[in-house]
């Protein structure tokens, strides 16, 4: 539901960054890294982008989404591995005492701007 607000924020940030770089061309590609624990759905982000981008300098741009896991750290044996399963046990020693770090962020990683 709140993906609309997230994509608005994403587009505002993109326009700001293009201006800061002193560029004037159209945005042709946005790369986004989406944590699997961010509570944002890639499908809903794409839908929101299709709704919000027409009429802006990002109209027709491709949205590349890279979904990333968090890091699961076992407090019993110290092993780490990528995971987004909040209720998993440690794959090494089976302990349920795990901490899941990261995987919560939504990051605009890069913007491709058409050469003008």
């Amino acid at each position: 539901m709140h993906e609309i607000a997230l994509v608005q924020d994403l587009m505002d940030t993109a326009v700001q960054e293009v201006g800061r770089a002193g560029l004037t061309g159209r945005i042709v590609r946005l790369k986004l890294s989406v944590g699997r624990l961010s509570c944002a759905s890639s499908e809903a982000l794409r839908f929101a982008f299709d709704v919000l981008s027409p009429g802006t300098c990002a109209e027709g741009a491709s949205l590349e989404i890279d979904e990333v896991d968090g890091l699961c750290r076992c407090r019993a044996c110290g092993s780490t591995r990528p995971s987004s399963d909040l209720l998993a046990s440690c794959a090494e020693c089976g302990s349920p005492d795990i901490v899941l770090e990261g995987g919560r962020d939504l990051v605009l990683t890069s913007i491709d701007v058409e050469d003008s």
Partner: peptide
């Protein structure tokens, strides 16, 4: 031209 941003949304 690609601009590397690495900016957190939210």
């Amino acid at each position: 031209m690609e601009i590397i941003v690495a900016k957190k949304i939210l």
